[in-house]
Amino acid sequence: MTLVTDVALRRVLDSRGNATVEADVHTESGGFGRAKAPSGASTGEYEAIELPASEAIASAREEAVPRLVGEVYAGDQREVDAALHAADGTDDFSQIGANSAVAISMAAAKAGADVAGLPLFQHLGGTFRGNTFPTPLGNAIGGGEHAADATDIQEFLAAPVGAPSVEEAVFANAAVHGEVADILDDRGVPCGKGDEGAWAPSIDDAAAFEIMAEAVETVGDDVGFEIRFGLDMAGAELYDDEEDGYVYGERVRDTEEQIEYVADLVDEYDLVYVEDPLDENDYEAFADLTDRVGDRTLVCGDDLFVTNVERLETGIEEGAANSILVKPNQIGTLSDAVDAVELAVENGYDQVISHRSGETEDTTIAHLAVATDAPYIKTGAVGGERTAKLNELIRIEHNA
């Protein structure tokens, strides 16, 4: 019933106005799935390769589609994803492009769920896990690679850890985003928005910490539950080989100073989450920081792990980080992403399912977060391509 009978690929727009890949998968019984690949700006050195959309589509049509149509069943995700790997023949999807691969992989999952008459999260993760839902991390202030002339730290993330429901958490993050705007206005600081919808004011990191602390406290008092915040520091972007350190404007911190700086921030602001605080190749420094603060915050590896089982295995051996950011397009297929989640959970690491800076209205990651029982999902606070995921989480919660 779920034999794949057609795979259609086309170019569509992402949230930055760039071309990305959309895939449609049809099955013999009328099942249908559609998915779109996101795209990153702050990308890890070891990510699967994203090709220009037209090139990825042409290559996938030639190499992958013949291995799928009439050959595999959409209801068997590992069979689909194994066919994609076989069609590509490389370790990093550099032949057909991770953007084509992940779009097809996610579309096939949706087609399989359609045939089974199940919501995607149940198709991916089995029966629903009670009232367990991810806490959304909402980007409220941003800079780094996502916005010019803004903070050195890439993301300041609201985390409504005390929210009694996904719905309340989603609206709390939106309220924090709005409160940040009000505080900036009171200070006479004009600003636009970065790639992920966060405010991108021309302020330094110290001012951003003050504003975030004030915003989460104000909104927390209003809603009556605890809201904390966290960071994506994008350490690989801050690190400069020539300077042999982490560059913050005119200041450069060496590795020991960076570890000390981050540990002090965790203590001062009670940070709930710190993503990529150090360079993507520095497992030892990640391990040192985790040893210092890992008992009270998530030290999350994004560029460090790139949703890659082999890199995660190295991190586990060295005690680097205590959580992994999971981005399906970073590794190419849903099966590969779930493998990383399972290895993480088996070894006491938390999984954080994540969007990309260049997003689409695709909602697959909302279902993946619920399917894998993720404690957090990182998917922005405002903006149609971000709220698509958040609204889908609310729907899942209401229909559970």
Rank of each mutant, 00 (worst) to 15 (best):
L3R: 14
A8G: 07
L9I: 09
R16F: 01
R16M: 02
R16H: 04
A23L: 10
H26F: 14
T27Q: 13
E28T: 11
S29T: 11
F32V: 10
A37E: 05
S39V: 03
T43K: 15
A53M: 04
A53F: 00
E55S: 14
A56M: 08
A56E: 08
A60S: 10
R61Q: 15
R61P: 00
P66R: 04
G70Y: 10
D81Q: 07
A82S: 12
L84C: 06
H85A: 05
D91H: 01
F93S: 00
G97I: 06
S100V: 02
A103Y: 01
M106D: 02
K110P: 00
A113R: 07
F121Y: 15
H123M: 02
H123K: 12
T127G: 07
G130N: 14
P134T: 06
P136K: 00
N139W: 09
N139R: 07
I141W: 01
G142R: 10
G143Y: 12
G144Y: 09
G144A: 06
A147C: 10
A148Q: 13
Q154L: 10
F156G: 14
L157A: 08
P164W: 04
E167A: 13
H177T: 02
H177I: 02
G178M: 01
I183Y: 04
I183Q: 06
D186G: 04
R187N: 11
P190A: 15
P190F: 13
P190Q: 14
C191G: 11
G192S: 13
G194N: 13
G197W: 02
G197C: 05
A198I: 11
P201Q: 08
D205S: 08
M212D: 13
A213C: 02
E214H: 09
D221P: 13
V223R: 14
F225T: 14
G230C: 09
M233R: 03
M233G: 03
E237V: 11
D240L: 03
E243F: 08
E243D: 10
R251H: 10
R253L: 15
E257I: 09
I259K: 10
E260L: 14
L265H: 06
L271Q: 06
V272K: 08
Y283R: 12
E284P: 03
F286A: 04
A287F: 11
T290C: 09
D291T: 15
D291N: 14
G294S: 09
R296F: 02
V299Y: 00
C300E: 03
D303I: 10
L304R: 15
T307S: 11
V309Y: 00
R311A: 00
E313K: 07
E318G: 06
G319C: 12
V326C: 01
K327G: 00
Q330H: 10
G332C: 00
L334P: 00
D336H: 00
A337Y: 02
V338L: 07
D339S: 07
A340K: 01
L343P: 04
E346F: 05
Y349V: 08
Q351E: 06
Q351N: 14
Q351A: 14
V352H: 08
S354E: 10
R356L: 06
S357G: 14
T360I: 10
E361L: 05
T363Q: 11
T364C: 08
I365D: 03
I365H: 01
H367G: 02
L368N: 05
A369V: 04
V370H: 03
A374S: 13
K378P: 02
A381D: 07
A388L: 01
N391H: 11
L393W: 04
I394A: 05
R395C: 03
I396L: 05
